[in-house]
């Protein structure tokens, strides 16, 4: 444990926090623009050229807005819930390799904060803890909408954890490792060796589970604006609400990275082209998150549970069994 390692890690953490907090803001701008274009609107236009400075305006608004803690809420829990959402989102990023390792000033940098050998399990676990943000926020809010949202958050997270875990089991069996770098190296041979071709079912299942765990549109039930206002965020204002927001968008970016690394070949052989390809894949998956929001309707909560336990989970189990049989013979 030398000092250089410590300094490097701290620098990487700071860069990660800054980049992805800013990207969360930029993600909202991007989302508003994409949705607007798909609905024949212009979207935000007034803050700077094509409203590119919208992030700054939103930031100023969020930071300067009055922080309201309503009566009857459980104060400390109410205050800590947004922090949990944002913190778990960024904690999950610790095991994600964002780029191939490169050399700068003769010093080799690995753009991963900690390459623990159970990377995927760790990411799944920490994203599962992300449940506590909406759950505690909703239960502490002393508000019926928030409580409904908390119940939905608990059921959706617990159910879709099962699907995401089981769907990843088959690729893990093929690679024989839980580290995302090993996953990347397994698929380094080119497009033909991508995991999506050998495990298409697992890919579809994991993408569906990713939509549920990030609460994006076909499964946007946890904070469904047209029936439960903003769900767990109803009573929040100012930067506390902003933290929920940053957590949600950071989660979207990180899960995009995970999907790209596990199923779509990651950064390939580690060249500059591979790094750019990874960014391209991540952007496309993020765009897909926004695209479905414009195109697809929401499902009902009971349909969501039905889909998880009666359709997706059996398919995932069958997929594992078939993969096991194929690998055995």
């Amino acid at each position: 444990m030398d000092t250089a390692y410590l300094i490097e890690t701290v620098i990487k953490i700071v860069i990660l926090l800054l980049v992805f907090s800013a990207l969360a803001g930029f993600g909202t701008y991007f989302e508003r623009k994409v949705l607007a274009f798909m609905q024949r609107r212009l979207g935000p236009m007034h803050v700077g050229p094509y409203s590119l400075l919208q992030i700054a305006a939103d930031g100023v608004k969020l930071f300067t807005k009055e922080d309201i803690v309503p009566q009857n809420v459980v104060g400390p829990i109410f205050k800590i819930a947004p922090v949990i959402t944002a913190a778990t989102a960024f904690m999950a990023a610790a095991a994600i390799p964002f780029m191939p390792s490169f050399t700068i000033f003769g010093y080799e940098v690995h753009p991963i904060i900690s390459d623990i050998n159970v990377g995927i399990l760790y990411i799944l676990g920490v994203m599962a803890i992300g449940l506590y943000g909406p759950l505690l926020g909703g239960m502490a809010s002393a508000n019926k909408w928030s409580l409904i949202s908390a119940a939905r958050a608990a059921s959706v997270f617990i159910s879709y954890e099962v699907v995401s875990g089981l769907s990843l089991l088959a690729p893990i069996m093929m690679v024989g490792s839980l580290s995302l770098i090993d996953f990347n190296n397994y698929q380094a041979a080119g497009v033909g060796s991508w995991m999506i071709w050998s495990q298409p079912v697992a890919f579809v299942l994991f993408v569906i589970a990713a939509f549920a765990e990030t609460g994006r549109t076909p499964f946007h039930l946890i904070a469904n604006d047209h029936e439960i206002i903003d769900g767990f965020g109803t009573e929040y204002s100012g930067m506390r609400w902003g933290l929920f927001f940053i957590g949600e968008y950071a989660n979207m970016f990180f899960i995009s990275f995970v999907i790209a690394l596990i199923f779509l070949g990651g950064f390939g052989d580690g060249s500059v082209g591979g790094a750019l390809a990874l960014l391209g894949k991540v952007s496309f998956i993020f765009f897909f998150f926004l695209w479905t929001r414009a195109a697809w309707p929401d499902v009902r909560p009971d349909q969501l549970m039905w889909l998880c336990w009666k359709v997706l989970m059996p398919i995932a189990v069958v997929n594992i069994v078939i993969t096991g049989i194929v690998m055995m013979f």
Binding site: R41, A295, W296
Partner: peptide, 22 residues
């Protein structure tokens, strides 16, 4: 059907036929 929905919104995005009155 899901992909028809996706295609429709993507087509509208590329057509860029905007109706907004600023």
């Amino acid at each position: 059907e899901l992909f028809v929905g996706l295609w429709v919104v993507l087509r509208e995005m590329f057509k860029f036929d905007i109706h907004t009155v600023q």
